[in-house]
Amino acid sequence: MTLSAPIPVLKQQAKALSRTQKLPLHAALDRIAVREGFRAWSHLAASWQQGGQAAQLHAQLSPGDLVLLAARPYQGKTALGLGLAVEALRRGRPAAFFTLEYTRAEVEALLHAGGDGLAAAACGLHIDTTDELSSVHVAQVLADAPPRMLVVIDYLQLLDQRRDKPPLAEQVVQLKAFAQQRQAVVVCLAQIARDYRPDTRPFPGIGDVRLPNPADLTLFDKACFLQDGAVRMQAGVAQG
């Protein structure tokens, strides 16, 4: 489906609508999406993200990578994460999507929003929506999985919201070890802090990642940032 304007322009229209109609931004984004022929902004974002960005980003990832995929809300990071998982499946590699944010029905809706081809390609995707999600759970569930799989975790800041789970810093270390031992690619979606201002910098950076609890982000081999329809990859995070 062709959009009436580029994604950044549509977002600006939503912001203006939010101000003039005194609507929450998410409601204004949904209204713009409906005008464009989609059920909601999440569905528009899912469809838009499948236009080649997932394939381009996937080509830059290597076995053993721990990857950060970060953005403010409504930038399409979940859709891009799902796109990466489906791209891995298309290339004959296993993939898994773990989420504390969405139900299975919502994940399936995002896949269908990307078109019938995307949903069909995702038929082998392991989807896990348990409230028990942690680095330990991921390692246990994938203990018998083949190597070189792609794992998406949605999202980083929710991993230690329960007191019976290890601290976030410890879980990042464990995910790094899992990626290296299994030669998997582990992609952690992450939120960007609210004080990031796109009017002063076109992309957020590693210092803008919201960390309610401490974690060593230098353990990530690569970081990918989304803003207004564009993607920027930062390699060598572990080296500073």
Rank of each mutant, 00 (worst) to 15 (best):
H58V: 04
G52A: 04
V34P: 05
L84P: 01
G64S: 10
V86H: 08
E36F: 13
Q50F: 08
L68F: 10
L89C: 07
G76Y: 08
G81C: 06
A46E: 00
I32D: 01
A88M: 02
I32P: 01
K77W: 03
W41K: 03
W48T: 14
L44R: 09
W41P: 03
A70Q: 00
R31M: 04
G64R: 12
A59E: 13
H58R: 14
A85D: 00
G37I: 10
G64I: 12
R39C: 08
L44W: 10
T78C: 07
G64E: 12
T78F: 11
D30I: 03
S62A: 13
Y74T: 09
A33V: 10
H58K: 06
L57K: 00
H43C: 11
A79F: 14
G83N: 06
G51T: 03
Q53W: 14
A46I: 07
L61E: 03
E87W: 02
P73S: 09
G92K: 01
Q49R: 15
Q53C: 11
S42L: 07
S47C: 05
A33Y: 10
S47V: 02
S42T: 11
Q53V: 14
A79V: 09
G51C: 00
G52M: 10
H43I: 09
G83E: 04
G37H: 09
D30P: 04
R31W: 04
P63G: 12
P63Q: 14
K77I: 02
L89Y: 04
R90G: 15
G92F: 01
A85L: 00
L57A: 02
L57P: 02
A40Y: 05
A40G: 11
H43V: 11
R35H: 12
R31P: 01
L84F: 05
A88F: 01
I32M: 01
W48I: 09
E36V: 13
Q50S: 06
Q50W: 13
Q75T: 03
A45L: 15
Y74D: 15
G64Q: 12
R91Q: 15
A59L: 09
R31K: 14
A45I: 07
Q75F: 05
G81F: 05
G76A: 05
S47N: 06
S47A: 15
L82Q: 05
A55S: 10
R39Q: 13
W48F: 15
D65M: 12
W41A: 03
P73L: 01
R35C: 09
R90C: 08
Q56T: 14
R72A: 09
Q49W: 15
L57N: 00
A79T: 06
